[in-house]
């Protein structure tokens, strides 16, 4: 048990380091390995290649943070809902955040990230409550399939609402177009500094709740009789999940499936102790997002393919696999 956790931790730390390095190294222009290394070791040197590496540093750090936030958010949401398909994109939370941002943009002319990040959080929070509420209607309670269906339905409904708001407004439509795919290419230092406090808040809140979440995964009745206030834990943990994915979505656009894949792969590696999974899902999410971003930069040359497209391509098969497995498990 212990051994598996140690091995996974080491593997993930190495993977995250490798992902950071790849992200500095690869892109539309491939910098010789030597120059990447010297730019990292001697940041004061000034050459063309060093400057490219430095430009990629912001993108890499932002990507690291965004991926970590999405990974942790997925772990939290899956534990809270005891549901293997809980993920911000599948639950429609991303669409909710997007709709709130667009409404702010079109009707209130809110276009600064430090303003619309709050709108995204509100949108994400309301949507997750709505999706969860719809999925829990009916005798059998919440099942993976019902949750996914409810998320998809709400997502479509909010999506068409979003189009209605957006279509008459060409300017908003244009800025939305790029945001909507999910990309870390346009990230600035301000984006990164804006995301950081939300990431820390969400992560600390989740870590404080880890022991409680471990007990909640045994079922509501079991958790209550072990002395957990299930309702409060669920509320706070959902808030942590929404802060993490809402803030990321506001700044990077909806990037799907990271929150689905990472906890799932981790459970296969380490088992399902939330205390272990939280830090590791941060590393795993960061690695996955950065590697997906590198792939997008390499296959899209001379331009680039947005990271949201790549994570969706990687994530869809995993989603199908999880749904099938979940069906067997829930019988």
């Amino acid at each position: 048990m212990r051994k598996r956790v140690w091995i996974s931790s080491i593997v993930l730390i190495l993977l995250a380091l490798a992902a950071v390095f790849l992200s500095l190294w690869f892109g539309a222009r491939i910098i010789p390995f030597r120059d990447v290394w010297s730019a990292v070791i001697h940041p004061q040197l000034d050459s063309y290649n060093t400057r490219v590496v430095h430009a990629r540093t912001v993108r890499t750090l932002f990507g690291f943070l965004a991926g970590a936030a999405l990974g942790v958010s997925g772990t939290v949401m899956q534990s809270v809902t005891r549901n293997p398909v809980a993920d911000p994109s599948i639950l429609g939370v991303n669409t909710g955040a997007a709709l709130a941002v667009v409404i702010g943009l079109v009707f209130f002319n809110i276009a600064r990230p430090e303003q619309y990040i709050w709108l995204a959080l509100a949108g994400a929070g309301l949507t997750s409550a709505l999706v969860y509420g719809i999925a829990s209607v009916g005798a059998s309670g919440i099942t993976p399939i019902k949750l996914a269906l409810s998320g998809a339905t709400v997502s479509v409904a909010l999506g068409s609402l979003l189009t209605t708001v957006l279509l008459p407004d060409t300017d908003a439509m244009n800025s939305y177009r790029f945001w909507q795919i999910g990309s870390i290419g346009a990230a600035t230092r301000e984006h990164m500094l804006l995301l950081l406090p939300f990431f820390i808040t969400g992560l600390v809140l989740a870590l404080l709740l880890a022991d409680h979440l471990n007990v909640v995964t045994l079922g509501d009745e079991m958790a209550s009789s072990l002395g957990v206030n299930v309702r409060i834990v669920r509320l706070l943990a959902s808030a942590a999940g929404v802060i993490l994915c809402g803030a990321t979505t506001a700044l990077a656009g909806p990037i799907g499936f990271v929150g689905l894949m990472v906890p799932h792969l981790l459970r296969m590696m380490t088992g399902s102790d939330v205390r272990v999974m939280l830090p590791l899902s941060a590393l795993g999410g960061a690695s996955l997002l950065l590697i997906a971003d590198v792939i997008g930069r390499v296959i899209g040359r001379p331009g680039e393919t947005e990271v949201g497209v790549i994570t969706a391509l990687l994530g869809a098969p995993v989603f199908i696999y999880v749904i099938q497995k979940a069906k067997v498990r829930s019988l």
Binding site: R82, V215, L218, M222, S225, L226, R267, T270
Partner: peptide, 24 residues
């Protein structure tokens, strides 16, 4: 209280599960 059908988290060992009884 032992409910009728508590949920088993994926990949949890027997000892780990029993340890969760120490939560209180």
């Amino acid at each position: 209280m032992l409910p009728q059908s508590p949920a088993v988290p994926e990949g949890i060992s027997v000892r780990e599960l029993v340890t969760r009884g120490r939560f209180p």
